[in-house]
Design a protein around this nucleic acid. Structure first.
Lengths: 157, 157
DNA sequence: CGCCTTTTCTGGAACGATTCAAGAAACAGA
DNA sequence: TCTGTTTCTTGAATCGTTCCAGAAAAGGCG
C-alpha cells in the first residue's frame, strides 16, 4: 500500500466537504465512501468499513464525522426503536422507512402522495409541525420465509 | 395508614391483572395507577410516582412490570429518537404522536382517516407490514411562545 | 515552503437507559 | 397452612453515545 496516499476518492466528495466548510481528511472521505456503499448503516458498520480502508480510526472520530455530516445535511440519522442510530445518504427527498421486525433491515419507501398525506394530522393540538416521520413495521421478504425463527437466514455481515 | 394496607386501587385493575394471568401486587397496582395519572411517562416518571405511593420499589421491578404490561397489551411503549422509552395506556386505538422538539412533550393525534392512509406505503418492497408508526415532529404551543425561532417557522426540513 | 491558528482525531473516562442474574419475598391454589 | 411459582430486590454488566484533554493534521498566510 502506498504511503499516505488516499485511495481513489471521488472528487465530488472533496468539493462537497469544502463547500460545507469542512476540512478534507482521510477519515471523512472514507465515511462518505462507506455511506455510499452501505445501506442504512449503523455507526458500527460505518466504522468497520472505514477501518477496512484506512486501518486504525477511532470510534469517536466516526461519531464526530457522522455528527458533522448530519449537521451539514449530508446524511440523515434515523433511530428506530430498539436499534442503534442508522444513517442514510439520501436527504432532501421525503421518504419513509420499512423496517423488518425480525432482522432489522431497512428499506426506503417514497412518500405515497409526494406531499405526505400524513404530514397533516387531523388535529395538531397547536403544534408547529415541521416533519412527519413514518415507520412501517413488518417482516421483510427473506424473514417471511423463515417464519419466527430468531436466527433465520440473515445474509448480513 | 402504616401497615401493609394498599391505598384505594380500582377493582378493575385487579380483575385486569388476573385476567391476564398476572399476580396482583402492590407495585403493579401502583404502576397501573401511575399510568392512568401520567401522560406518556418514562420509566423514571412511573417509578417516581410509584414510590410516592408505596415507598421503596426497585427500579428493576418497574421495568419488569412495564415489560409484563407491554406483553399483556395493557400499555404501548414508544421510543422517540433521543428520548428514553415512554409508555401510554391507550392501546387498541390507532393513534399517532406529536412530539415537541424543544421540551419533548407528547400529544396524541387520532389517525386522520381512522384506517390510516399511511398504513399503505406506495411500494412495500415485499414487506408484510403490520403497523405504521407516525411521529409528527414540531414545537408545542408553550415552547412556541417561549423563544425558539425568532422568525416564523423553520424553512427547510 | 514553513509558521500559526483552527479543526479534527485519539484515547480514555463517564453516562444514561436498559438488561442480566441470583437469591429473598410474596402470591395463589390445594 | 403448605408449596410451587411468580415477582421483587440488589448489584453488576452491557450497549450506545457523549464528554474531555491533549496530540496530530489541515489550510491560509507570509
Amino acid at each position: 500500500m502506498p504511503t499516505g496516499t488516499v485511495t481513489p476518492a471521488h472528487v465530488g466528495d472533496i468539493v462537497r466537504l469544502k463547500d460545507a466548510g469542512l476540512r478534507v481528511t482521510a477519515p471523512r472521505l472514507a465515511v462518505l465512501e462507506a455511506l455510499r456503499a452501505l445501506d442504512h448503516p449503523s455507526v458500527d458498520a460505518v466504522t468497520e468499513a472505514v477501518r477496512e480502508r484506512l486501518g486504525a480510526v477511532s470510534t469517536q472520530a466516526v461519531y464526530d464525522i457522522l455528527g458533522a455530516f448530519t449537521a451539514a445535511g449530508f446524511v440523515r440519522r434515523i433511530e428506530p426503536a430498539g436499534s442503534p442510530a442508522l444513517f442514510e445518504g439520501r436527504v432532501d427527498d421525503n421518504h419513509h422507512h420499512l423496517i423488518c421486525r425480525v432482522c432489522g433491515s431497512v428499506a426506503d419507501v417514497d412518500c405515497a402522495t409526494g406531499h405526505a398525506p400524513c404530514l397533516t394530522p387531523s388535529e395538531r393540538a397547536g403544534f408547529l409541525v415541521d416533519e412527519a416521520e413514518v415507520i412501517y413495521w413488518g417482516v421483510c421478504p427473506s424473514c417471511q420465509g423463515a417464519r419466527v425463527s430468531p436466527e433465520g437466514g440473515k445474509a448480513h455481515a
